[in-house]
Amino acid sequence: MNSNKKDKLFQWIAGIVLTLGGIMFVLPFIWMILSSFKTESEVILIPPTLWPQGFTFENYKNLFENMNFAVYLKNTLIIVLFSFFGMFLNAMAGFGFAKYNFKGKDGIFFMVLATMMIPSQVTMIPVYLILNKLNLTNTMLGIVLPGLVGAFGIFLFRQFMTTIPDEIIEATRLDGASEFRTFVQIILPVSKPILAVQAILAFIGGWNSFLWPLIMANDEKLYTLSVGLSLLKSQYGGNFALQMAGATFMVMPIIIIFIIFQKNIIENYTTSGLK
């Protein structure tokens, strides 16, 4: 009885501590959203208002009418599409490593994993020089190529695809299907769980992409939302409501997608992250 009471007390304390911490964790988001609907004169009021005096969409309108955010959005979506393509390449490589025996397989796979250790600060200057040599700086292709495939994605696909029974593949081979058709028509559908997670992560990664567009794009025409927002911050440092609208516009789609798919994302780490 006594230990039961103690346990209950502990549950309450844990709940209260987590609630307080949780409030602190979402506070920046709440402040960001509320401020984005305030006027520029209201966001610098002392004392600040919590709830906007009158909701205004002026800041959002401003982003699209005067600030090129439509162009940034278009570029960001193009990058997202490319990251889906990159995910497909990762899946192909994962399949190659999972279901075939070939010469040099272990060595190549080790090399793939080793690339995870290389910091982007080491590669960013040489990659810029390489793309410059290929005349790809300041092009969309130059922005997406360096981050198109990733060792971690290949690794996760390989892990999942090794669990697919060989019999399924053998059966389609006997039916005379080509290797590539086997991959597209049999392997990909079976790999739906991992594809779903990877697609969400590819979307988030593409949507948030910052470093390569920052380095490769000399031209505002190729800026992504992230780069555009950092430009906005340095050019309109005092326009906090405008900045908050830009930040909200970037963050909200991700938060919504994350909340819808949080189970898949969190479970992905739970099952594949540490085993």
Partner: peptide, 21 residues
């Protein structure tokens, strides 16, 4: 779990802009 995970998925630029404010 969701509440504490939320900041991890959001865009670092957007978040830095918010925190600077």
């Amino acid at each position: 779990r969701v509440v504490f995970y939320l900041p991890s998925v959001t865009n670092v630029v957007a978040v830095a802009v918010v925190w600077a404010y």
